[in-house]
Nucleic acid binder design. Structure first.
Lengths: 110, 110
DNA sequence: TCGATATTTAAATAATTATCTAAATATATA
DNA sequence: TATATATTTAGATAATTATTTAAATATCGA
């Protein structure tokens, strides 16, 4: 989830997602939308891929990128739960954690 | 909006938001939840504040931080629009932008 | 007013991320 | 098979962000 948040924290990457929302596109096609070298775009695509936000598939000479909405909806869920717009099940989570305890440091909750 | 995304891209800051969702807290109280110096937490609080995600108010000796959900709901809106879960009004936005045009570079859309 | 407490700001450094050019890999096609 | 096209990987550098200690600011209470 942290990877997703980090991936979304960049305007270029969000724009790439917007482009892929319209339709699947090749890496080069995506790169044409930006004033940036292809390696840089490749790097951003990689970040999105590692975050699980896009998928890629080689099609001959090209590599076709497509949106994967699964993780996006997880993040959406985070916001829904957070803002209280969503299901109430988590809203009265009185798991009031205590300060300075610092146990379970590697849990990776959100 | 970019500031908000960037602010949300850090686990410490998201945890701070979680803490503030439960109740308003002072800077020191927040800092006690982390293995991190107070100046570091102050820095994170500042990032959240600049993103419009939290507000602060001095109360005597202390500074009390509180959640501001307004921007959070904007970001939620971004996801709703993006995933198509929300109102359809924006879903058929066939504003199919063309590549390599690169006009209007400073618009700050999302 | 003085000393203690709460918090931030400053300054330095470390760590991460973004970006570029050049080179490598994979595929297509003549 | 040789050449051209599409994309990524490597390596270097620049830019941004996180973190710390030390100092500054603000308020409280004796």
């Amino acid at each position: 989830m942290n990877e997703s948040f980090k991936a979304l924290a960049d305007p270029t990457r969000r724009q790439i997602l917007r482009l892929l929302r319209e339709k699947d596109r090749t890496a080069g096609e995506i790169a044409d939308y930006f004033n940036m070298s292809k390696p840089s775009i490749s790097h951003h695509l990689n970040a999105l891929k590692h975050a699980g936000l896009v998928q890629d598939e080689r099609q001959g000479q090209f590599i076709l990128y497509s949106l994967d909405t699964t993780v996006l909806e997880e993040v959406l869920g985070w916001f829904l739960e957070f803002t209280g717009t969503g299901k109430e099940s988590e809203m009265h989570s009185r798991t009031e954690s205590k300060p300075k305890q610092n146990k379970d440091k590697n849990r990776e909750v959100d």
